[in-house]
Computed example of a mutant assay.
Amino acid sequence: MMDEFEAIRPYTDREVPTVMARLFADREFLDILARFRFPKLAGPLGWLLKPLISRKLHKEFAGIHSVDMLQQRIESYVERTIARATDGVTYSGLDGLQAGQSYLFLANHRDIVMDPAFVNYAVFQTGMRTPRIAIGDNLLQRPFVSDLMRLNKSFIVQRSLTGRREKLAAYQLLSAYINHSIRSDGESIWIAQAEGRAKDGDDRTDSAILKMLHMSRKDEAFAETLAALHLTPVSISYEYDPCDQAKARELYTRASTGSYQKTPGEDDASIALGITGYKGRVHVHFGQPVVAPQEDAKQLAYALDQQILSGYRLFPVHYLAYASWDERDPQLAVPQAATLFSSDELERARQEWNRRLQACPVEQRPYLIRQYATPVRNQYRVKAGLPL
């Protein structure tokens, strides 16, 4: 038993029945389910709905005694969510992964829950074991959220610590856990390339995360540690981001006031909108596992960025946004959307893009455009061999 990782690790199989029983009795959790399933009735009839939902959950998940069984049972819910909120999900690069091998999937980060969910779903479909998921403790303010995430193979990244010594100890523990998971347990890991979502569409790997991976293995060279983790870049592309308006508002507020203060429940709202909101098409590309990592963390981050940015799937909306962007790069030969997509596809995208622009306050629109235009600039810079 990994006692040293007790505070951050996901739940084990033997803990599953106890945690599920706790969840199905949690009033806050049942209240959210009631409001999600029966929005009109949840207020006046919540007292009646909650025990009914609890009973249904007990019945539906009876006999689940392991994390794998739970994920198999949840698969149909994930498929239903994908069917409702997307126009289809496609994958590429999975043939570069070997069954039985554990990987450190390092991905661009746009959505709190759906980024790892789509990676999980892809890996699950191939018959490989799903990765353990890194999630910040800032998102686990309520016990039932922590229970839900840790049941689904999430481990905790302690971001809310303020003391330098505590932070250092937390990163040391995190580093040890990730190395232990891949090298000893044979379990893959998903982690975002940087702390927090890329709200401006600029996907960049933070070299501090790569350095953290080496913290617990100082007896090894940096490149040796990273090679043992089978570091694999992943590009997740959403045609439309359900949270794009909220991100534009945050970026505008930061630019005009110098800071941004989240309101209570804002993360919960982002999670809910990210799961249920319309995404259009979604593409997940698995890059080439890094066989011989650079010895320098910044150089390795740059090499990972080249893979992540070139693996990003650009949709018509990205080209439409780029064409209207004030910060277009004159060095880049970016083609017109009309030369790349059919007129029908382009017209649908134009209508949806105009709808989003109209819904966005005028002063915030440059930040909405930037989110969709930046991936175009980044990808064409990589193609042209220009510095990022």
Rank of each mutant, 00 (worst) to 15 (best):
S154F: 14
I53H: 07
Y238Q: 08
G63F: 10
S188W: 03
D219I: 04
V291C: 00
H214W: 06
G136D: 04
A42M: 10
E15K: 15
L174W: 02
Q294P: 07
R132N: 10
E187W: 05
E195I: 05
L386I: 15
T18D: 14
E363L: 13
L94C: 03
G274S: 11
Q71N: 09
P17T: 08
S92K: 12
L320F: 09
P10S: 08
Y322A: 06
V119R: 02
W47Q: 03
G163S: 15
I53A: 06
G163E: 13
V19S: 03
D219K: 14
Y103D: 06
F5M: 11
E295M: 12
Q299P: 00
L357N: 06
E347Y: 10
R150M: 07
L388A: 08
W325I: 06
H214G: 09
C360K: 10
T81N: 04
A227Q: 10
F36L: 03
Q358P: 04
L300T: 01
D147I: 06
A122D: 12
R328V: 04
D241G: 03
F38L: 09
S102C: 03
H318T: 05
L52H: 05
F155N: 11
E75K: 07
Y322P: 00
W353E: 01
V382F: 09
P233I: 07
S235E: 00
G127D: 11
P366Y: 13
I308S: 00
I8R: 15
P387N: 07
A176I: 00
A228K: 06
W325M: 04
R150A: 11
R73P: 09
E60S: 12
A169K: 15
S181W: 02
